[in-house]
């Protein structure tokens, strides 16, 4: 089983809810798959669509955005905006040949450590079924044609 596909997933989490929820999962010693690397932003409203495209273009197998539940945003409505962005992005990445399931947005509050563990597990299962990022499969990890990486 040594060469079983282990996905590399990028997590982009809001500081107030999911990042805190992920911390709670840690404090409670809940065990979940170690496939997600987390970037902390203050609010999912900060999610620039380019972050997602960049991540996929450099070979991420999946991107998991997670923030506060709708109505609970620390900045009132940032999660509404990112939810819309993610919905559009899911369609957009299909145009690039990615399965839309490679991008997911979830809502996990500061008290939902167990839910975070579940969300990660589920995302990892999904990505395992989908297989590695097609760019990686093509052996062209340096392929970054999808987005310009210098000018933002």
């Amino acid at each position: 089983m040594a060469d079983e596909f282990e996905p590399n997933i990028l997590g982009i989490l809001c500081n107030w809810c999911t990042y805190a929820g992920a911390d709670l999962a840690g404090t409670s010693r809940m065990q979940y798959p170690p496939n997600v690397r987390v970037i902390r932003i203050m609010c999912t409203g900060r999610l620039d669509p380019a972050f997602v495209l960049k991540a996929l273009s450099v070979g991420a197998d999946g991107v998991l955005i997670s923030g506060c539940h709708i109505g609970d945003c620390h900045y009132l409505a940032g999660n509404f905006k990112s939810r819309r962005r993610v919905a559009l992005l899911r369609k957009l990445i299909e145009e690039y040949g990615y399965d839309r399931e490679r991008l997911r947005m979830t809502f996990v509050s500061a008290s939902e450590g167990a839910l975070w563990a579940e969300v990660v597990q589920d995302m990892v299962n999904t990505i395992k079924k989908l297989g590695p990022n097609p760019l990686k499969q093509a052996g062209a990890a340096q392929l970054e044609g999808a987005v310009a990486d210098d000018e933002f």
């Binding site: 990028l10 970037i39 620039d48 972050f51 960049k54 450099v58 991420a60 990486d149």
Partner: peptide, 11 residues
């Protein structure tokens, strides 16, 4: 943030 994503990809 982009630099973090790039560093992520070096894994």
């Amino acid at each position: 943030i982009m630099s973090e994503i790039e560093a992520f990809a070096q894994g």
